[in-house]
Amino acid sequence: MKIQKKAHAGTLESGDVLVTVMPSDTLTIEIQSPVVRQFGDAIERSARDVLDAMNIRQGAIHLDDQGALDCTLRARLHTAISRALMEEDDTADPSGKDGNTVVMTE
């Protein structure tokens, strides 16, 4: 599935993360975090987990992290994607196979 519209979840309060998801032809994950040096890889892994579980292959994912715990990160990303997919469910590309290249930036 691909992200069809822009959506947010979360906040910029300490311990939270503001997730923004946007339509894109590729899959990119951008992580901004005060603990990126300690937990950047872990954050990326969890984000990929959620994306895989929700079958998301295309989209620009931006995580503005304020030191969120893993469970918060997963919840916010899940909510943002659900919001982005709402109403678009019937128009979404059902094939899901688009052979996109995955670009990861930090």
Partner: peptide, 9 residues
């Protein structure tokens, strides 16, 4: 258990 193990800097 709460945070994960931070990478050693």
């Amino acid at each position: 258990r709460l945070t994960g193990k931070p990478r050693l800097l």
